[in-house]
Computed example of a mutant assay.
Amino acid sequence: MINILTILFAIGILVWIGFLIDAFIGFQSLDALENEAALVDGPLLSVIIAARNEESQIRQSIISQLTQTYKNIEWILVNDRSTDKTGPLMEQLAKEDNRLKVVHIKELPQGWLGKNHALYTGTLSTSGKWLLFTDADIIYKPEAFAKALHYAEKHRLDHVTAAPNLNAHKFWLKTFVAFFLFGFSYFKRPWLANNPKSKIGTGIGAFNLVSKATYEAFGTHERIKMRPDDDLQLGMKLKQEGFNQRIVTALHLIEVEWYGSLKEALVGLEKNTFAGLHYRFSMVLFAILGVFVTHVLPFVAIFSTNKILALLSLGNIIGSGILYVMIIKKMTLFSPALFFVFPITALLFIYSIIRASFLTFKRGGIVWRGTTYTLRELRDQKQRGES
């Protein structure tokens, strides 16, 4: 057993070195939107917001958008079958500002996920050169739109996605969000979206800015209508098909409280976890084992009486720690000191994978926005999308 761990940890050190080099090079291409100039006047921007039961957050989000320094904007607010006061709140906002238009959806067509259908429906009422897909709980600083449009126009881009400040107030939620971003970053390598030679792309639901011509040429949300990770899939497929894409950070311009508690985070990840693992239980087992071996086991093995194993464990901890600090400082406003509870957070993340996969299997699918989608539907749509 010690010999196996020795080999694994020796390989692990080499892997962490590779990740560190890759991230260091990649982050050189990752611009901060705060440093961008602001576009004063330009093309019409159409902002599409799909909301279901967002009565507690949507007004604050929209108000933050209405104070943007960029003025040539229209908003399409899509009420996606809400059962609370979201619809009436949208109508009230539209009465206060004639740049807002409200679309109400009462039924979900067969073969669509709710949010994807709502976003697509919203685009049918747009007139802008640029489409911005954003969520109903995002808070914007006044120059966010102006800077993003200037960046897109200057670099002649088809798609820009921005990483917001994921705000979290409770300690364990903060550690969980930080760990998620850490894992997402080194696994998905989002900085490769900025490499024209790479086919790897990305998309973030808080801020997906795409030209309308590109969106229509791509095939709209109909291409990803059964993907619960619609934001990521939109960006990935756009890049795969050769569209010009970049990801930027906007930590001081865009903010969202992703989840209010750790429990909410666990529930929220139910819909995406199994999709992110390609609906395969072999990938679930691989993910659980991978996280445990790389993020938990070294913190145990460092106390081994075998000095070589202990030193290799320390090397893995140092490697993962340096990468963690690098990613957290670049992609969040959290303190890198959260690394001190890293193995505990890794165990929480393993629990989230097991929980989400078990519930998906037990239910025979996922529940999202009040609708159940079977695994067969999701898998069939995924296969059609890849063919």
Rank of each mutant, 00 (worst) to 15 (best):
M1N: 09
L5S: 11
T6V: 11
A10T: 14
L14A: 14
W16N: 11
G18W: 10
D22R: 06
A23G: 07
I25K: 06
Q28S: 14
S29L: 05
D31S: 13
L33A: 04
L33H: 06
E34L: 12
N35V: 02
L39F: 01
P43V: 11
P43E: 12
P43S: 14
L44P: 02
L45W: 06
R52I: 03
R52G: 00
N53L: 02
E54G: 12
E54I: 10
I62T: 10
I63V: 13
Q68N: 12
Q68Y: 05
I76C: 09
V78Y: 00
K85A: 11
T86E: 06
T86D: 04
Q92M: 08
L93C: 06
A94V: 03
D97L: 04
R99H: 10
L100A: 07
L100C: 14
K101F: 15
K101N: 10
P109Q: 05
G111P: 09
K115G: 10
A118C: 07
G122I: 11
T123G: 05
G128S: 07
W130G: 02
T134F: 00
T134S: 02
I138H: 03
I139E: 07
Y140Q: 10
Y140H: 13
A146K: 06
K147N: 03
A148M: 08
V160D: 01
A163T: 09
A163E: 07
N165M: 14
N165F: 13
N165S: 14
N167Y: 14
F171M: 02
W172F: 13
W172I: 11
L173W: 02
V177L: 11
A178T: 12
L181Y: 10
S185Y: 10
Y186F: 15
K188L: 04
N195K: 14
N195M: 11
K199V: 10
G203M: 07
G205Y: 03
G205A: 07
L209H: 13
K212W: 08
A213L: 12
F218N: 07
T220R: 15
H221C: 12
R223E: 08
M226F: 03
D231I: 00
L234T: 03
G235A: 09
M236V: 15
L238V: 05
Q240P: 01
T249S: 05
L251A: 06
H252N: 12
W258F: 14
G260E: 04
L262G: 10
L262P: 15
G268P: 02
K271S: 15
N272E: 15
T273Y: 03
M283W: 14
L285M: 12
F286N: 09
A287M: 04
L289A: 09
V291P: 05
F292E: 05
F292P: 08
V293T: 06
T294L: 15
V296Q: 01
V300D: 01
T305I: 15
L309G: 01
L309V: 04
L311A: 13
S313I: 05
L314H: 13
G315T: 04
I318G: 00
G319K: 01
S320R: 02
I322P: 02
M326N: 07
I328D: 03
F334T: 05
F334D: 11
F334V: 05
A337K: 11
F339Q: 04
F342C: 03
F342E: 03
A356V: 04
L359P: 01
L359H: 08
T360I: 03
G364C: 02
G365S: 08
V367Q: 12
G370W: 01
T372C: 09
T372E: 14
Y373C: 01
T374W: 02
L375H: 00
L378F: 00
Q381G: 15
E386T: 05
S387I: 12
